[in-house]
Amino acid sequence: MFLKNFLFHLGRYVIMMRTAFYRPERVSMYYKETMRQMNDIGIGSLLIVALISIFIGAVTAVQFSYQLDGTLVPTYYIGYIVRDSTIIELAPTITCLVLAGKVGSNMAAEIGGMRQKEHIDAMEIMGVNTAGYLIMPKVVAALFVIPMLVAIAAFISIMGGYVAAVPTGLMSNAEFVQGVRSFFVPYNVTMMFVKAVVFAVLLTSVSCYQGYYVEGGSIELGKASTNAVVFSDILILLADYVIAVLLTG
């Protein structure tokens, strides 16, 4: 039963995504919608991403300072650990988990609401490829904007680590800067962007899928919105593991 259900949803998801990437009826309309989505996803999420990132960096610095206390590991390693843990893991993963909650649930509710209010039917009857018009701009916008948000998150997170470590006396300014500049591997940044792109596609497409096929009333819409977050989060964490294995193997 589970397998049958899984295959049903997987098949429907693949068909939806294939339909979403048919040639647009009018590129200018899709472009406008993509710009609107970029604004909603990017500018709309900037504050929450910044807020979370600063604390991620701060907590990482404080925790590692505590763990390294009394060991022979040099203090400047805290800066190095904050930088790498942020770039490799925390910035892409935590940012996208948060975006799944904010942007993903919003997308599922928006598209689901349109389904329930017959807006999607109205567009279908006009001859609009609704999967294309409603989903493609969201996925494309996320593909551009989420990596930018992740990069900003990484930067702010390192700043958060600095704020938590230097003014409080855990380490000196010179030590933190030395740590941040030590053992830098540019490939880690590539890994961060690979994760950001994969997570962006996952969280937008899964959320759109949940909204696009919603049936029933407000309870089902609420469930779709919750499912969008839950399934996006699970898939992001699964993809995180797979990417980690593939790119570090």
Binding site: K117, D121, A122, E124, I125, M126, G127
Partner: peptide, 15 residues
């Protein structure tokens, strides 16, 4: 789609 370009529809809740 070509047929639907010739179709108009008024929905119960206007949509």
């Amino acid at each position: 789609r070509a047929i639907r370009m010739k179709v108009g529809m008024l929905f119960q809740a206007s949509a």
